[in-house]
């Protein structure tokens, strides 16, 4: 029965409160990369976002052109982030590519961004010259860092720049107690739940996750992760999924995770 409930949750059947139906979403993990631009044009993306009730979206793209196109098409929705590499295939190598620094400098000089990321880095990757320089560039501009990686890398980012605001992508794919530990350790770390579904279970919300949400109601947010072009067609479904499991939390926590936490994170400069 529990899985049936999971699926019903996905389909929105369990989103029983009228409040949940209307819950605005801040999608904190989106990409609009070069191939997505050719398959799903900006006006279609904007329609997808509006239809899904996504009021704001933190968007980073490989390359950055997609972000700029979307920003121009929907400045009220798009919160731009600068990804440090121009092709997704570079996620494991970009930190060894010195041209990344010039790329970042050029983009930061030309456009406005709220964040650098989403960038992939594990463990000692953070000590590479490219990432250390990138963190320095973010520090100069007080930009959020959207980091995809493990706790060790997260620790090293905060050791490099203790006041950094970091959005921990997918919350490191760590279990809820470990995510909670990171949030306890670092008051300026926030946790995105993109590409995860383990929060939803037979009772609506997994008990361990519920404890984490109740302990840190101001620190979590949702995200679709449109890593491939087709996944733009998943945005509506993901928004419904989010509303469904959030409907099983107290209204104020649900509102925070759905939207308010991301806004507060961006404002916490």
């Amino acid at each position: 029965m529990k899985v049936s409930l999971q699926i019903l949750a996905v389909l929105g059947v369990l989103a029983t409160s009228a409040h949940a139906e209307e819950l605005p979403i801040f999608d904190a993990h989106m990409h609009y990369s070069h191939d997505a631009v050719s398959f799903v044009p900006p006006n279609e993306v904007v329609k997808i976002l509006r239809d899904a009730g996504v009021r704001k979206a933190l968007v980073s793209s490989s390359d950055d052109r997609g972000t700029q196109l979307l920003k121009a098409a929907a400045p009220d929705i798009i919160v731009p982030a600068l990804r440090p590499y121009e092709r997704r295939g570079a996620i494991g190598t970009w930190m060894h590519d010195p041209s990344v620094i010039d790329y970042l400098a050029k983009k930061l000089a030309k456009f406005e961004y709220e964040a650098i990321g989403e960038f992939h880095a594990y463990g000692d990757d953070i000590q590479t010259k490219v990432i250390q320089t990138m963190i320095g560039m973010a520090r100069e501009r007080n930009l959020l860092l959207h980091h995809h990686g493990d706790r060790e890398a997260l620790d090293q980012i905060l050791a490099t720049w203790p006041e950094a605001r970091v959005l921990w992508a997918h919350s490191g794919f760590a279990p809820p107690n470990e995510v909670a530990n990171a949030l306890r350790t670092y008051p300026r770390v926030w946790a995105d739940l993109a590409y995860r579904s383990d929060m939803a279970d037979s009772s609506g919300v997994d008990e361990d996750w519920r404890k984490a949400f109740e302990k840190f109601p101001d620190r979590f947010m949702v995200g679709t992760d449109t890593f491939a072009p087709e996944r733009w067609h998943y945005v509506g479904r993901h928004a419904e999924f989010s509303r469904s499991w959030l409907a099983h939390l107290p209204d104020d926590i649900a509102r925070k995770i759905a939207f308010e936490n991301a806004e507060a994170m961006l404002a916490a400069k």
């Binding site: 529990k2 899985v3 996905v10 579904s197 087709e230």
Partner: peptide, 11 residues
């Protein structure tokens, strides 16, 4: 009864 919903199921 036990099949698990995952976002990676899409596609």
């Amino acid at each position: 009864r036990n099949v698990r919903f995952q976002h990676g199921n899409f596609g």
